[in-house]
Design a protein around this nucleic acid. Structure first.
Length: 1104
DNA sequence: ATCCTCCCCTAC
DNA sequence: TAAGGTAGGGGAGGAT
């Protein structure tokens, strides 16, 4: 079902030529940089032709050297600085700035500060090296780029540096954020900031002024009435929330066409207006942005744009609530999502307490109970666990500074529209008395409680309070397991305090005093019972369940209260007449395991007895990272989807990079509207959906956004879905590795290990079997369609059906399928490895093959004799390059082993129709590109698009072209090929790019499916080498860009003709591309490592 | 048996 | 209008 194919590798040469910022840097004329230029945006050369003759192949290496030199200079200057080493010299330790644009003081002065005070100064932006971007102001046009490329890095005014120096300590950068961004971020820290938490920002206990500033409620001016906005909680509300969600999904099903919501609507309209009037008396103001008084006053001026949680004020007035209307939907959405906040909080915690999460043995030393013994896996004679949970966290945090609201029913919600479907996130206890629950629509909540006060989220305050919360916990205990922002387990078995109830009350009191919010605690001998105890303790209490009381406590406890039992399991148990733990306990463990599975059965058996062997531990390393959006997702066409996927991939890539990991398995999830589902009850909700997913595993881990995009596109193609039915999209990455792992000579990177791997075999075979129906998703014209079918019956496909098959049981092609000429032209290291793959028989095969050709003895014998001969393996040393090249008399279109009739048949055509590579609509034609195409190409395109409306434009614009009556044989490009196909080393030295030649090679010798041909294709890619950066590529216009970006991160010459021919190549290769992609990516690291050194200079390899 | 994919369930 | 995410665990069923 799923076609497993994959791509990818880490972007090689990141630090050299493939870094857009590097190559841009060279073109910079002014000392003051702009972000756009530095990050590759808007940096096209003014004249392409002017650039064409520049020694651009050297740009990468030039920049690499230059950067290196700058670093060395900086280091030398820093080490000679009289300040270094002194206590004050390290103010900026760990800070690495990139100065963008004009600043006061100048970037050179800022550099001086960094030099003196232990920081770093980056001349060119690198997401991996830079920790802060320094910027005085940015034109609006740059803001978007900034968001896209900063990767969550703080963008801060120079004053931060100056004042830090003045204070002789590193101040928090947050008050110095750039105004534009601060305004946008005031509601919630930029999403990516979760993952790039600035380690230099000392964890702060909010002081009173900050609290006041941050937590003031405000009026929603645009609605002309009062509305309190801010925050909410997770925890105990979530059970109800889940239940409500489930109920709602059910109600949206086909069987419930007209339900209560209609009636409810009429009801609430009359009921709710009075409460609106009442609420309008309340007035609050807000300046939620800042942590400093001065900043607060600044932000008052642009209050409306700075409003917390107010996309409605930050964005144009029309509704920007769906993927259709908001181009930055993904980013904006996450900023306001409470579930996203809850879901990503753990990352923030990991960053804040890294020592607690990177291993099972590391512990933070705790001055309060130093000397406490490490807990072993064996239970002590007495275990004591305290579970602490803040009470209705989201609400409590928001209203803690508003005594006038105490005792009143308050809930956190995005909207207080009394007819709306915004969800109550958290309700305080007075509200709960009215039946207001988390997960409820606000309209339903208002029906139950018309005087309900709605307050908005304040994610920033939640973070702050959570930090305070954990600071307190860590002070009292060195074994803290974070569950969420407001909930944690403490293992206090080893603490000196003997009275655990006293300890719990001390901690709770401290939490209240520090945060202004109450917390409840449960005390028991294991995590399960402690957590259950907390439920009893709430609100604002604590409860101890001693071992002797466990049985009694559990006997009447509903099974639903046990962690791990949700509504589904509850229902299953209910069907067996099991509602309480007391009823569950008599059931035999085997019986439970039979009914619910091994693990779940055992869990039920244990939990019903209060048995829980888990130990309070550390946060484990994450196993997967992903992002999904299931609200506001609506698409009209494939372009919409592509746009969304692109943004989603950016998001996921940033998260991967932020966590310093790369992944190998990629899962794309789609929520598809059920065919019989109507409009969702919830505004912009996903309604009644079926969930679909497809997975791909690639040989090498990546965090590269381009790779993610291609994978996502590829995965999406597997769904065959009407884009109008999509209600949610998610991308998850698993099989994570540390970002540095792949660089350390990972075994998996070897050709042998990859080609012989199970997944590789599987993927190849799947791909091959999929080829006849291989669908390439091309977004260029906004529709999904099949690729050109001209290659039907392609070599690979036919090969798959041939007797020999592509792979034998070892997962490599039969020896006789190899193209000797190609093998010989490989670098010795690669030949050596391939030789190993064949158990040392390759070299013998090569000599035998050469003899065979010389003897013109064409058929049968050779293959067999090679395989069986056991010819002595030539010493690698003797198989010198010169020797190999000397033997290149082998016809390049001759493929060893292709001596059977069907093999000859499937050799790809020697010519192709230019129609195959034509743009399908005028919109795909970039006029600047068009203008520079060879005349005959232009003519063809005009003819091809003749039936399109607007083709006259082309004729008019380039009348000189259309007027020419040059007769060109459209079906034959052979005249454009450059010389004879040289061997690849020669091509490497040919600066005019052997692409054209290679193109010939592929199709003349195309014996698809066998390694020889693949290698030829792959080698060819290597020579599409980097001329300009991607900017030059971007200049090629939308048509080229759209086409290329799906398939290849190619660094290409600015020569338009070459670009055009690359397209030819890629299009023709598309049908076997997935297969090629994997081989290519498996080989590249080898080539790069061995060849770069072997042949000197920078080997510029395009990445797929 | 063991692994994998494609789900589902659950907690927060 | 509204922001229904994130991640771990496990089961079914298929491939090897």
């Amino acid at each position: 079902m799923s076609s497993n194919s994959a791509s990818k590798s880490k972007r090689s040469l990141k630090s050299t030529s493939s870094n857009p910022s590097s190559s841009d840097g060279k073109r910079k004329k002014t000392a003051q940089k702009t972000l756009g230029m530095a990050w590759g945006a808007n940096s096209r050369p003014s004249s392409r032709s002017a650039f064409r003759n520049s020694p651009f192949t050297d740009v990468g290496s030039y920049m690499a050297v230059k950067n290196q030199k700058l670093h060395e200079q900086f280091n030398a200057a820093a080490s000679s600085s009289s300040y270094s080493g002194s206590s004050s010299g390290n103010i900026f330790s760990g800070v690495s700035i990139f100065v963008d644009g004009y600043t006061v003081p100048s970037s050179q002065e800022l550099r001086g500060y960094m030099l003196k005070y232990g920081g770093r100064f980056e001349n060119y932006f690198s997401r991996h090296r830079v920790t802060h971007i320094i910027c005085s102001n940015l034109p609006d046009s740059k803001i978007k780029n900034l968001r896209a490329f900063s990767g969550g890095l703080p963008i801060v005014k120079p004053a931060w540096l100056l004042e830090s120096v003045a204070a002789n300590k590193l101040l928090s950068w947050t008050p110095y954020q750039l105004d534009q961004l601060a305004a946008e971020n005031c509601n919630q820290a930029k999403l990516s900031a979760f993952f790039t938490l600035q380690y230099n920002e000392a964890p702060k206990i909010a002081n009173t002024s900050v609290d006041d500033c941050d937590n003031q409620l405000f009026i929603k001016k645009d609605e002309g009435r009062a509305s309190l906005e801010q925050a909410e909680s997770c925890n105990e509300e979530e059970i109800d929330l889940l239940q409500l969600k489930t109920d709602r999904v059910m109600s949206e099903g086909p069987s419930c066409s007209v339900e209560s919501s209609c009636e409810v609507k009429g009801l609430e309209q009359s009921d709710c207006s009075p409460s609106d009037m009442k609420n309008s008396d309340l007035e609050y103001k807000s300046s939620p942005c800042k942590a400093s008084v001065s900043h607060c006053s600044n932000s008052l001026d642009n209050y409306s744009s700075c409003e917390a949680s107010s996309s409605r004020n930050c964005l144009p007035t029309n509704q920007l609530h769906s993927t259709l209307s908001d181009p930055n939907f993904v980013e904006n959405y996450f900023k306001s999502s409470r579930l996203h906040f809850i879901g990503t909080w753990r990352n923030r915690y990991r960053k804040r307490f890294p020592s607690l999460s990177n291993g099972t043995t590391s512990r933070v030393s705790n001055p309060y109970n130093e000397g406490s013994s490490m807990k072993t896996g064996v239970a002590n004679e007495k275990n004591v666990v305290i579970h602490i949970d803040m009470d209705c966290f989201f609400v409590s945090v928001v209203i803690r500074n508003h005594p006038e609201l105490h005792g009143k029913p308050v809930a956190v919600c995005h909207s207080d529209n009394p007819r709306g479907t915004a969800e109550i996130s958290s309700a305080n206890y007075p509200a709960r008395e009215y039946g207001v629950k988390a997960g409820m629509f606000v309209k339903d909540a208002k029906i139950r409680c018309p005087q309900l006060v709605i307050v908005p989220y304040d994610f920033r305050a939640y973070e702050m309070v959570a930090d305070q919360f954990y600071d307190i916990l860590h002070r009292h205990c060195n074994k803290v397991q974070a569950v969420s922002c407001d909930e944690a387990f403490l293992d206090v078995s080893d603490t000196k305090v003997g009275d655990y109830e006293l300890l719990a009350s001390i901690i709770r009191k401290e939490i209240l005093n520090t945060t202004g919010c109450t917390a409840s605690a449960g005390i028991a001998e294991n995590m399960l019972m402690a957590r259950l105890a907390t439920k009893t303790a709430k609100p604002d209490g604590q409860f101890h369940i001693p071992p002797g009381k466990v049985d009694d406590y559990l006997y009447t406890l509903p099974v639903k209260a046990l962690p791990g039992i949700g509504h589904v399991l509850e229902e299953k148990l209910k069907k067996k007449q099991i509602r309480t733990c007391g009823q569950l306990r008599p059931i035999a463990k085997e019986s439970l395991q039979k009914d619910f599975g091994m693990k779940t059965g055992e869990m039920l058996w244990n939990y019903s007895r209060g048995i829980d062997s888990r130990l309070v531990g550390l946060i484990q390393e994450s196993k997967s990272i992903g992002a999904e959006v299931n609200w506001g997702v609506r698409f009209n066409n494939a372009n919409d989807v592509q746009h969304f996927l692109t943004n989603l991939c950016k998001e996921v890539a940033l998260r991967l990079q932020g966590c310093g990991v790369q992944g190998r398995t990629f899962t794309l999830k789609i929520k598809k509207k059920k065919s019989d589902a109507g409009e969702p009850v919830k505004y912009m909700g996903h309604g009644y959906c079926e969930n679909l997913s497809h997975t791909i595993t690639i040989p090498m881990a990546t965090d590269d956004v381009g790779v993610l995009q291609r994978l996502a596109t590829q995965l999406f193609g597997h769904f065959h879905i009407d884009v109008g039915d999509i209600r949610g999209v998610g991308l998850q990455v698993s099989k994570l590795e540390g970002a540095g792992d792949s660089k350390r000579g990972n075994k998996r990177n070897s050709i042998l290990s990859w080609v012989s791997s199970t997944s590789a075999k599987e993927q190849n075979q799947n791909l091959i079997s999929d080829l006849p129906k291989c669908e390439a998703w091309r977004p260029t014209d906004g529709v999904l369609r099949q690729p050109a079918s001209s290659m039907k019956g392609s070599s690979i496909e036919m090969r798959a059906g041939s007797e020999t098959g592509i792979y034998n049981s070892t997962g490599i092609p039969p020896l006789q399928d190899l193209d000797v000429a190609v093998i010989e032209s490989l670098p010795p290291e690669v030949v050596s490895e391939i030789n190993e793959m064949y158990g040392g028989k390759l070299l013998g095969f090569i000599s035998a093959s050469k003899n065979k050709i010389i003897n013109t003895n064409i058929h049968d014998a050779s293959t067999k004799s090679c395989e069986d001969s056991g010819v002595a393996v030539e010493d690698m040393g003797s198989l010198s390059r010169a020797h190999l090249l000397e033997s290149n008399t082998v016809a390049t279109d001759k493929v060893m082993g292709c001596d059977k009739e069907e093999d000859l048949d499937f050799a790809a055509p020697a010519t192709f129709s230019r129609k195959d590579i034509m743009p399908s609509s005028l919109s795909q034609v970039d006029s600047s590109v068009f203008q520079e195409l060879p005349e005959e190409f232009r003519k063809d395109i005009i003819e091809h698009l003749g039936h399109h409306q607007g083709a006259e434009f082309l004729k008019g614009a380039f009348s000189d072209v259309s007027d020419k009556q040059t007769e060109v044989e459209a079906s034959d490009l052979s005249g454009l090929w450059v010389g004879n196909p040289p061997k690849w080393v020669e091509k490497f030295q040919i600066s005019n790019c052997g692409l054209l030649t290679i193109f010939a090679e592929i199709y003349l010798s195309g014996s698809g499916g066998c390694l020889s041909s693949l290698l030829q294709c792959l080698m060819s890619r290597i020579f599409v080498f980097t001329g300009a950066s991607t900017d030059g590529f971007g200049n090629a216009g939308s048509w080229l860009h759209e086409l290329f970006k799906q398939y290849i991160d190619i660094k290409i010459t600015t020569d338009v003709e070459e670009i055009y021919l690359c397209i030819c190549l890629l299009r023709r290769l598309t049908e076997r591309f997935e297969f090629l992609l994997q081989v290519y990516n498996a080989i590249i690291p080898h080539l790069q490592a061995s060849m770069g050194e072997h042949y000197g200079g920078t080997l510029c390899i395009p990445l797929l």
